[in-house]
Computed example of a mutant assay.
Amino acid sequence: MNLSSTANTALSVRDPWALVPSLGNLDAYISAVNRLPMLTQEEETRFARRLRDDADVESAGRLVLSHLRLVVSVSRQYLGYGLPHGDLIQEGNVGLMKAVKRFDPEAGVRLVSYALHWIKAEIHEYILKNWRMVKLATTKAQRKLFFNLRSMKQGLKSDASDANAHRNNLSAAEIDSVARALNVKPSEVIEMETRLSGGDVALEPQTDDGEESYAPIAYLADDSSEPTRVLEARRRDALSSDGLVRALAVLDDRSRRIVEERWLKVNDDSSGGMTLHDLAAEYGVSAERIRQIEVAAMKKMRKAMEAA
């Protein structure tokens, strides 16, 4: 389709969107919307009244179509946030459609002036949601400070000397200057500056370095409530109490006393129970024989616990 030959009749077709390419081809889209003619004030008022009184969808489309170039122009002001230009335009178009829906032709203002607020509001919301994973500004005052502080910081950097141009953080004097200009407290400027200076940290390791990779997920994850861990903990607690009692019950008196002295008894000085030689002297056998009895007793206890 030849956009040049159809630009003058763009607003007269039944489907005014037919002449606007997809945002997938950004250059073609911008070229197309910039060639579409603007509405006169009389046309704008007539279409707005039709939309208000008769809910005429075609009139709404013509109002939106004639202001798409405004969205493109506004969206360019926010390219410094590193977000895709097409996404910024798309969000701005949403704001434009909201403005068209609410526009009152009897208010005495042009749609371009009324829509500007809605376009910026949608773009601001998109930036705040997507610029960082964690929201930087939640209240109206914080949002205003967020955008104003970024623009003022860029101005301060451009005015700074070459020796200080590399600095990222504001000095105390610059913080006071910004606070006075924006009519906020210096502490609020410092807090937002801290948020802006921070960055997102990936929870998962970004490279497969084996044992060398160490990301926050390694120490932030709480797996204490994970089902398998809960079952393991219950099983371990059961074996250390009732299971141990049942396992000791399968042993003869001598074997049980050897196991208790060697593994279960703790003296006041935390030195443990009797040694192999102590038990060997008590029972009149060698230390090796006591060790053999201990090994056999542990095997019996293990089988008893596995069967429980």
Rank of each mutant, 00 (worst) to 15 (best):
M1Y: 08
M1N: 09
M1S: 12
M1D: 05
N2C: 03
A7F: 01
N8R: 09
N8I: 12
T9Q: 06
T9K: 06
A10T: 11
L11W: 05
S12W: 10
S12Y: 11
V13N: 02
V13C: 12
D15C: 10
D15Q: 03
D15L: 04
P16Q: 05
W17L: 08
A18T: 15
L19Y: 10
V20H: 04
V20I: 14
L23G: 03
L23I: 06
G24N: 13
Y29Q: 04
Y29R: 08
I30D: 03
I30C: 06
S31T: 15
V33K: 03
V33F: 05
R35W: 00
R35I: 10
R35L: 15
L36T: 04
M38S: 15
M38D: 11
T40R: 09
Q41R: 08
E42K: 13
E42C: 02
T45F: 07
R46W: 12
F47A: 07
R49N: 08
L51T: 01
R52K: 12
R52T: 11
R52S: 14
R52M: 15
D53E: 15
D53M: 15
D53K: 14
D56R: 04
D56Q: 11
D56P: 00
V57L: 14
V57P: 12
E58L: 15
E58Y: 08
S59Y: 05
A60W: 03
A60D: 03
A60T: 06
R62F: 00
L63T: 03
L63F: 07
L63A: 06
L63Y: 08
V64S: 05
L65G: 09
L65Q: 12
S66R: 00
S66F: 00
H67T: 03
H67P: 06
L68Y: 10
R69G: 06
R69P: 00
V71Y: 02
V71P: 02
V72T: 13
V72R: 01
S73T: 11
V74I: 14
V74S: 01
V74G: 03
V74F: 02
R76I: 07
Q77F: 10
Q77E: 12
Q77A: 13
G82V: 10
G82F: 03
G82A: 02
P84D: 07
H85P: 10
H85N: 14
G86A: 13
G86S: 07
L88D: 06
L88K: 09
L88P: 01
L88R: 09
I89F: 08
Q90F: 14
E91H: 13
E91L: 02
E91D: 15
E91F: 08
E91I: 12
E91V: 04
G92M: 09
N93W: 04
N93F: 01
G95R: 11
M97L: 12
M97E: 05
A99F: 10
A99Q: 03
V100C: 08
V100P: 02
K101V: 08
R102C: 12
D104Y: 06
P105E: 05
P105L: 03
P105C: 10
